[in-house]
Amino acid sequence: MNEEKNKGIAALSYLIFFLPLLVCKDDEFAMYHANQGLLLLIFGFGISFVLGLIPILGWILLIFFPIVSLVFFIMGVMNALKSEKKPLPIIGGITILK
């Protein structure tokens, strides 16, 4: 069962999304979580950029956005450690890495 073997790498992919690309590119489970980690990174930068451009309301929301990102991060790591392939809310259905 590759999920058990590579679940540590899959969990780390939320910090370093390209790690599975280097270590276990052929493992579908690790690559799934690498994709989720990359999506979380893009989502974080994208939303932060957009909210930073919106005066006052965007800046206020920008204060709370890291909490949302942290919750998504924890959800992804927990899914990887439980050997589950659950998509993250809102962004999880997008596939960039195959």
Rank of each mutant, 00 (worst) to 15 (best):
N2D: 15
E3R: 01
E3L: 04
E3M: 00
K5R: 15
K5Q: 15
K7S: 08
L12H: 04
S13T: 03
S13M: 04
S13F: 02
L15I: 13
F17K: 05
L21R: 03
L22P: 09
V23T: 14
D26G: 15
D27G: 10
E28I: 01
F29D: 05
F29M: 04
A30T: 05
H33Y: 10
H33A: 01
Q36H: 11
G37F: 06
L38K: 06
L39H: 03
L39T: 03
L39C: 02
L40R: 01
L41A: 10
I42R: 02
F43A: 09
F45N: 00
F45P: 00
F49H: 11
F49T: 08
V50D: 10
L51D: 09
L53R: 10
P55R: 00
I56G: 01
L57V: 15
G58M: 10
L61S: 13
L62G: 15
I63C: 09
I63L: 13
F64P: 07
F64R: 06
F65C: 02
F65A: 07
P66T: 12
P66E: 10
V68P: 00
V68L: 12
L70P: 01
V71L: 15
V71I: 15
F72S: 10
F73N: 06
M75Y: 03
M75V: 07
M78V: 14
M78K: 15
M78S: 13
N79G: 05
A80V: 03
L81E: 06
L81R: 03
K85T: 08
K85C: 10
K85F: 04
K85A: 07
K86N: 12
K86S: 01
P87R: 05
P89H: 13
P89A: 15
P89Y: 14
I91F: 11
I91P: 02
G92P: 03
G93Y: 12
G93R: 09
I94V: 15
I94K: 06
L97E: 05
